[in-house]
Nucleic acid binder design. Sequence first.
DNA 1: GACTTATGAAACGACATCGTTTCGCAGCAG
DNA 2: CTGCTGCGAAACGATGTCGTTTCATAAGTC
Lengths: 197, 197
Amino acid sequence: MSVRPTRGEGEQNSDPRIERSRRVIQEATVDELASVGYGGLRIESIARRAGVGKATIYRHWSGKQDLVESTLAMIKEDMVAPGEGTVRERVTSILTWLASYLTDSRASSVMPALVSAAQFDKSVAEFHFRFTSERRHAMIDLLSEGVQTGELRSDLDAELAAEMLAGVLFYRRLMTDRPFPSEEVGNLVATVLGSAD
Amino acid sequence: MSVRPTRGEGEQNSDPRIERSRRVIQEATVDELASVGYGGLRIESIARRAGVGKATIYRHWSGKQDLVESTLAMIKEDMVAPGEGTVRERVTSILTWLASYLTDSRASSVMPALVSAAQFDKSVAEFHFRFTSERRHAMIDLLSEGVQTGELRSDLDAELAAEMLAGVLFYRRLMTDRPFPSEEVGNLVATVLGSAD
DNA sequence: GACTTATGAAACGACATCGTTTCGCAGCAG
DNA sequence: CTGCTGCGAAACGATGTCGTTTCATAAGTC
């Protein structure tokens, strides 16, 4: 992915400046992605925001695509946290996290930027669809588990339910100027899964 | 909106070449929007696709933004058709149209392009949100009508239901590589509104 | 402390796109 | 038929971005 990791993947470089440069550059890339999107990305803007020379960027990555790919991979790493509890609780927790991510965060535009870029850039699309698919199937599996254990109604269509839940959050973020408030995720879950007895 | 409609809005120009030029240029703009998105739009590409000189474009519009705005307005005009029947039938018909538009059509990427552009371009965002809001409220009103007449369950949350319905279609189109098949819209409507008795 | 090396700043050529202008031609009006 | 005008093609300067190179400096190693 990166062009010149002077040493191998996991090994630590002797010079801390290298890792630091990579970190601040990728952070700046996230910020730029969020503020101008993939199409508006300018290497010079990233360098300026990172307080770094353009040359330093090209020392570590072969170009824009390389940098973005490695940054997206980093974002994916940061994305975590299933949790404990009943199916209903875990579903609510995942969606609450997603709602906050699409609302509050400094990075609330990162995911929209990814969605946008995927529409017209093949390599971004590949990443985006694979990434989304993983999270989607995690949710579907979770809902299926709930159906099998009897926690959720037996006639629930897990796949459709997963798409409705995430769909509403993304719809609100992408199609309106009122992103879905994370406080209302409970209502949403109750509506889609049915109220608890 | 346009810069030099030699005569006023509705009047007919004496020279048919003018109207023809405007038409083929806007059609080419739609195609380009669908294939490379707003950020990737190049005036020269539009000119080439339209079989037109670049100068002709600048004769009719002041620049890229002017052209896109007037083209989006045109797209909006083309978007029609409530229909007749029960609330359930009208809802199904609207969503079936939307599903086809996001699936089959030559223009299946126009709306995603709009969504994408709206994330980072202020003037596009204004258009996009207003446009979406209109269609959303039409759907909400329709569902409310169904609740009031007793055709739909009285505890239905019209707003949330509208967002779930459209949300699933957009989620499928933007977040996966399997757009929602228009044949399955019936199932979707039944799931969200509840099966008919 | 002496060396090594990554860094930030700046300038570079190459290239793409913008919006303008020019020009000869062809379609239209009368 | 004749004059007019919108047209397509081409070339233009201006601008902005890319990816590279150079160079003195400062941060690192040993």
